[in-house]
């Protein structure tokens, strides 16, 4: 398989997953804010903080208001992590590999892109947002299922999985980070809200029901963190995603370096005592995790993708 084609498939999967998880991110924050008493709500800035796009945001917007942040995350084409940018990029990647991707998947992606742009105004309103985001998440899920169920499970599929699960691991950790970033003061009267907020996080990952089935204890910080980071059976948990990445890597040639980095990531994840981490420590842990995911991506790109144009071709191998 051509390196360029592998790269396009990988990014197709990453962008689809990114669009879905950005929708989840906006939706978890909206729910959190509804649950919190007026006056202590942290507002919308944490979403920009955890996507790490503050500089870009501040260049174009005066304040971190709901309208501005939601616009930035949903539709701003200058922000490569916005839902519209991600879907447009997924579509461009898909266009070049139409012989690899089943036609129905291309049509589904096309339809998703059209829905997202045509209904965008709905998504910007407080009342229309929930339905818009839910529809987006549902359609990306359908697309993911369509690819799994109809695409040839060869090398190309492994790159689809690599892209999907790396992006998902990264985004799940960011979604959990929304909660740690809100940094509610440790006060006895705020305790009940704490639980409510973790329920919100679970729900935005479609994890609430599965958490209850798997943990069978009431929702509280420690077990929830363990579930969304360390579960090896919940498909949006970071640990599960790492295993899926490992399965993909194992089917590819010249995979030693990438597997080593993955092994390091998985060990540090397994060894983390999440419930003991203060919110600030948790934030640091998530940062480190994301840096590790970044390293793994670099290794995948260096091993299998096209070399960057700057490097002289003769030295490529």
């Amino acid at each position: 398989m051509l390196s360029r084609v592998a790269e396009n498939i990988y990014w197709l999967a990453r962008y689809i997953e990114r669009a879905e998880n950005t929708a989840r991110l906006v939706s978890v924050n909206a729910n959190l804010l509804l649950d919190l008493p007026r006056g202590i709500a942290p507002g919308w800035q944490p979403l920009i903080d955890i996507t790490g796009a503050n500089t870009l945001f501040e260049e174009h917007y005066k304040e971190y208001g709901e309208r501005q942040v939601v616009r930035f995350l949903l539709s701003d084409q200058r922000h490569c992590g916005s839902i519209m940018s991600a879907l447009a990029a997924a579509r461009e990647n898909c266009r070049t590999i139409r012989d690899i991707v089943p036609r129905e998947a291309w049509e589904q992606l096309n339809g998703l892109y059209l829905f997202a742009s045509e209904e965008l105004q709905q998504g910007m309103t407080k009342t229309g947002r929930h339905r818009y985001l839910r529809e987006l998440i549902g359609s990306t899920q359908a697309l993911t299922g369509l690819l799994d169920g109809t695409m040839l499970h060869d090398q190309g599929y492994e790159f689809l999985c690599l892209g999907r699960y790396l992006e998902r691991a990264d985004m799940t950790s960011r979604i959990a980070d929304v909660r740690s970033a809100t940094l509610l003061p440790e006060a006895e009267e705020l305790r009940p809200f704490d639980t409510i907020q973790w329920v919100s996080v679970l729900k935005s990952l479609t994890a609430y029901q599965m958490y209850r089935r798997s943990a069978q204890i009431r929702v509280q910080r420690g077990p929830v963190l363990r579930f969304i980071f360390q579960s090896d059976s919940f498909p949006r948990a970071v640990r599960y995603c790492m295993e899926a990445v490992r399965a993909g890597l194992e089917h590819l040639p010249r995979n030693e370096a990438a597997l080593r980095i993955l092994g390091r990531l998985a060990r540090s994840l397994d060894n983390a005592q999440l419930e003991r981490l203060s919110p600030a420590d948790l934030h640091a842990f998530v940062d480190e995790l994301q840096a590790g995911i970044g390293d793994l991506h670099q290794e995948i790109a260096a091993t299998w993708f096209l070399p960057l144009p700057e490097s002289p071709a003769a030295e490529a191998d």
Binding site: L2, S3, L306, P309, A316
Partner: peptide, 17 residues
């Protein structure tokens, strides 16, 4: 960009393998 010519003056394509 999928192709390159190496020091042996042969043309190669970048593949996953």
């Amino acid at each position: 960009r999928d192709l390159f010519v190496d020091g042996d003056d042969c043309c190669y394509m970048h593949t996953v393998d």
